[in-house]
């Protein structure tokens, strides 16, 4: 196979492209090593969902807020070389598994830069909310 560019030029172009990709990458670190005390065991299920849009769930936390309702937090990592944009929505469920009707259940948009992280947060519409249902849709 014949290449249109000589070897040194090809190497330069390749290095340049890699540098361009790396320019938009966010580097992330944390002072915390272990999981949070409020970490939830259903992280794998969330991760399976996010993997479908090329994202990664680092941790799922659930805790009761000062006001009473439960709050969930999902740390979402983007291990890809591209920025990822997506829409997400949470419906809260009561102890019987019924959806709690709420004007707070709306589609929200989020974007995670390459190598970066974002946290999806949602608060239950009342003290009855103990579980949640997450929907995600890739936007880009």
């Amino acid at each position: 196979m014949k290449y249109p560019l000589p070897m040194p030029m090809r190497a330069s172009v390749l290095t340049g492209l890699l540098l361009l990709v790396a320019c938009g990458t966010v580097n992330t670190t944390s002072t915390r090593d272990g999981p949070a005390t409020t970490a939830h065991p259903k992280q794998t299920q969330i991760n399976d969902l996010l993997t479908q849009i090329f994202l990664h769930c680092r941790e799922l936390r659930m805790f009761r807020t000062a006001g009473g309702p439960m709050e969930m937090q999902i740390d979402v990592n983007n291990d890809d070389f591209r920025q990822r944009n997506f829409a997400w929505r949470v419906d809260w469920l009561d102890a019987q598994g019924n959806v709690i009707p709420s004007t707070m259940s709306v589609w929200k948009s989020a974007s995670v830069p390459s190598g970066g992280m974002t946290t999806l947060t949602s608060v239950a519409p009342g003290d009855a909310g103990v579980d949640f249902r997450l929907q995600v849709r890739r936007s880009d």
Binding site: T65, G67, P69, E71, T103, M104, V123, P125
Partner: peptide, 22 residues
């Protein structure tokens, strides 16, 4: 409309989690 829905949802989440009304 989605901006208004996002705003009202964000306001409510903050208000309920703080428990100010209680």
């Amino acid at each position: 409309m989605q901006d208004i829905l996002k705003a009202s949802s964000g306001m409510l989440e903050s208000l309920l989690s703080q428990g100010t009304l209680k």
